[in-house]
Amino acid sequence: MSTPKVEIYTKMYCGFCHRAKRLLDSKGVEYEEYDITMGGPKREEMMQRKPDARTVPQIFIDDKAVGGSDELASLEREGRLDAMLGR
């Protein structure tokens, strides 16, 4: 089974971003982080991938929008995150 691609769009000084990354780190998950603090092409990319996204973090697992920190934590509590991560 291949390892899913995990991507997270973040901003500096974002507590929710840190919380989401801490959860992923605690599970040993490798992820690609895109800092959109100053806007730019990665922010535009995030908006194209999830047009209703107005907050960070925005997390994608294998190109599927998971949501933010609360949604990630909810998946973990429900025991569904490991399956999404191929574990």
Rank of each mutant, 00 (worst) to 15 (best):
M1R: 15
M1P: 15
M1S: 15
S2C: 12
S2A: 15
T3F: 05
P4L: 07
K5F: 13
I8P: 05
I8H: 01
Y9R: 01
Y9Q: 03
K11N: 04
K11H: 11
M12T: 14
M12R: 14
M12H: 14
G15F: 09
G15W: 14
F16S: 03
H18C: 03
H18A: 04
H18F: 00
R19F: 02
A20G: 02
A20R: 08
A20M: 10
K21L: 01
K21H: 10
K21W: 01
K21T: 01
K21N: 09
R22L: 03
R22T: 11
R22P: 00
L23Q: 13
L23C: 02
L24S: 06
D25N: 14
K27S: 03
V29Y: 00
V29R: 03
Y31L: 09
Y31Q: 07
E32L: 12
E32V: 11
E32W: 01
E32C: 07
E32Y: 04
E33D: 07
E33K: 15
Y34A: 02
D35E: 08
I36E: 01
M38H: 10
M38C: 09
G39F: 09
G39W: 07
P41R: 04
K42I: 05
K42A: 01
R43S: 04
E44M: 14
M46G: 00
M46Q: 00
M47K: 12
M47H: 04
Q48V: 13
Q48Y: 14
Q48L: 06
R49Q: 14
P51W: 13
P51C: 04
P51A: 03
D52E: 15
A53K: 07
R54I: 12
R54Y: 11
T55Y: 08
T55R: 02
T55Q: 05
P57N: 03
Q58H: 04
Q58M: 13
I59E: 05
I59V: 12
F60K: 06
F60H: 01
F60N: 07
I61M: 07
I61Q: 04
D62F: 05
D62Q: 06
D63F: 12
K64Q: 15
K64A: 08
A65V: 13
V66L: 08
V66E: 13
G67V: 12
G68S: 05
S69Q: 11
D70H: 08
D70E: 11
D70K: 10
E71F: 05
E71C: 05
L72V: 02
S74L: 12
S74M: 13
G79K: 05
R80I: 08
L81Y: 00
M84E: 15
M84Y: 03
M84P: 12
